[in-house]
């Protein structure tokens, strides 16, 4: 139990998927102009991350490895992720049509989010049990949530501030993300994971 909590904590802070591993930058920059949009987007991505991590671990453990089909890992994982995103989109449209309309194209774009495929593939290397894979997915999602919400809050302020003309828009956003990344790298050595 404790090692699962450790996995989650390590993935949220020390090995944060967005700021330390630099995966999933597209929704970070694309859906972070408003706090509400960022919160909705990060919740959807967390849902997909957890679901995709769990399903891909199961398929890998029960079907790919026993039948020696490891070469089909990449293709099967992508198909599973696409299906998980499709299911998430259906669910979001059912639960909140407004959020679905606000997120727009960024919801199906979670399929191409390399953090989702990254979690699925990294699980094949470093997780031996299903609960470990699930914890890794949850940790990745929570880390993504944390960064999205922090970044959206920062970005709302930066957009209203007196930024020099060449830096306005994406440039200052990337500089901000870089500074946040440096802050998060400070978590290295928090504990020996």
């Amino acid at each position: 139990m404790f090692d699962l909590l450790l996995i989650i904590l390590a993935t949220v802070l020390v090995n944060n998927f967005v700021l330390v591993k630099f995966l999933g930058l597209c929704p970070l920059l694309g859906a972070s102009t408003r706090l509400e949009t960022a919160a909705g987007m990060s919740l959807a991505t967390t849902f997909v991350l957890t679901l995709a991590a769990a399903l891909s671990f199961l398929v890998d453990h029960w079907l790919l490895i026993p039948f020696e089909l490891e070469y089909l890992r990449l293709v099967s994982f992508i198909v599973i992720i696409a299906a998980a995103v499709q299911f998430t989109e259906m669910f979001v449209r059912h639960a909140s049509p407004l959020l679905h309309q606000v997120l727009g194209i960024y919801l199906p774009l979670i399929t191409t989010n390399c953090a989702v495929l990254g979690v699925a593939l990294l699980n094949t290397h470093q997780s031996t049990r299903f609960v470990e894979a699930l914890a890794y997915g949850i940790g990745a999602g929570l880390g993504f949530c944390l960064v999205m919400i922090l970044f959206a809050g920062l970005r709302e302020r930066v957009d209203a501030a007196d930024v020099p003309a060449p830096f306005r828009g994406a440039a200052i956003a990337l500089v901000t993300a870089g500074l946040m990344s440096m802050a998060f790298i400070g978590f290295t050595g928090l504990f020996r994971a």
Partner: peptide, 13 residues
């Protein structure tokens, strides 16, 4: 295998 997997997923969706 891919055919079977995608059929299963399609049915679930």
């Amino acid at each position: 295998f891919m055919g079977g997997l995608t059929l299963l997923i399609a049915a679930a969706l």
